[in-house]
């Protein structure tokens, strides 16, 4: 690896500078948001509902809406996502046409931009199924968006379970489902949890799809039929309509901190998986 002529030295410099540049971008973004946002943060900002369209008060209702939507979408997507991962890895006759088709659709879904999901959620859930702009429409749309992530991470975790586990369980007289439920699922739980953590990150940051499906009411959502505005949508409205830069910084601060926490836990559970696979 010794740089032995000027070309190599220039190349080395370019490589290190590129990496440094990316680190600088990230540090710049996070540092800026934290420095500018921290002065807006206090207990009232977190616990008080917004008033005057967000010009005053806090952002409590948007925090609750974010949690509500995230939780509901997980409730829908986790069983379906984990279920299909189990089917694809354990039941589908090794890579048959159906399994290939499901994998292809899962990849396609993962690549579709959120605005398309928003359009679909709007025409299907909001209008066609007459759910209106609501937590329900929003969380169904979100569920579709996080489904590929949950399925993919679950699939990876399930396929990493050693074959002997299955053989041993079946040899002891356990049925297929008993084997899946008592042996395979527990050993692949960390992978499924990683999928859930990544999905929470996606749900917290999602904006375009939710504007079109959950609406942007600032009220406190009680029933799933109520409309809601998440923190990310709130940030967009505050900035786009020039309502309050100070509160926008505070909201951005909370979103970034939340994403960093989620990211930390995702890394933690990923490294746990890496350790258990060794």
């Amino acid at each position: 690896m010794m740089a032995n002529n000027w070309q190599d030295r220039v190349a080395t410099a370019i490589f290190w500078l590129s990496a440094l540049f990316i680190v600088a971008i990230l540090a710049g973004i996070i540092g800026y948001i934290i420095i500018k946002g921290i002065s807006s943060i206090n207990l009232d900002f977190i616990l008080q509902p917004p008033s005057k369209a967000g010009r005053e008060g806090g952002i409590s209702t948007t925090i609750v809406s974010t949690g509500y939507l995230t939780l509901m979408s997980l409730l829908i997507a986790v069983p379906i996502g984990a279920g299909s991962a189990i089917y694809l890895e354990e039941y589908a006759r090794s890579k048959n046409r159906f399994a290939r088709l499901v994998n292809l659709t899962s990849e396609t879904l993962a690549g579709i931009p959120s605005i398309i999901f928003g359009l679909f959620g709007f025409v299907f859930f909001v209008l066609f199924l007459e759910m209106g702009w609501s937590i329900l429409s929003g969380s169904m749309t979100l569920a579709i968006m996080i489904l590929p992530t949950i399925t993919r991470t679950s699939q990876e975790a399930i396929s990493a379970v050693p074959y002997e586990y299955r053989d041993n369980s079946l040899a002891l007289g356990a049925s297929k489902w008993q084997t899946v439920w008592k042996v395979i699922l527990p050993s692949s739980l960390p992978g499924i949890i990683t999928g859930i953590i990544l999905s929470i990150g996606r749900a917290v940051g999602e904006t375009a799809a939710l504007i079109l499906t959950a609406g942007s009411s600032l009220g406190m959502p009680l029933s799933p039929a109520d409309p809601a505005r998440t923190m990310s949508v709130h940030l967009y409205v505050l900035v786009a309509e020039g309502i309050s830069m100070e509160r926008a910084f505070g909201t951005a601060f909370l979103i970034v901190v939340l994403i960093m926490i989620i990211n930390y836990f995702a890394n933690l559970s990923l490294s746990k998986i890496a350790k258990s696979m060794r």
Partner: peptide
């Protein structure tokens, strides 16, 4: 890890910045 974090920052925060 830093690049994962970069990927995790929501687009609305990028727009704001």
């Amino acid at each position: 890890r830093l690049i994962e974090l970069l990927a995790g920052i929501p687009s609305v925060v990028y727009g704001f910045i």
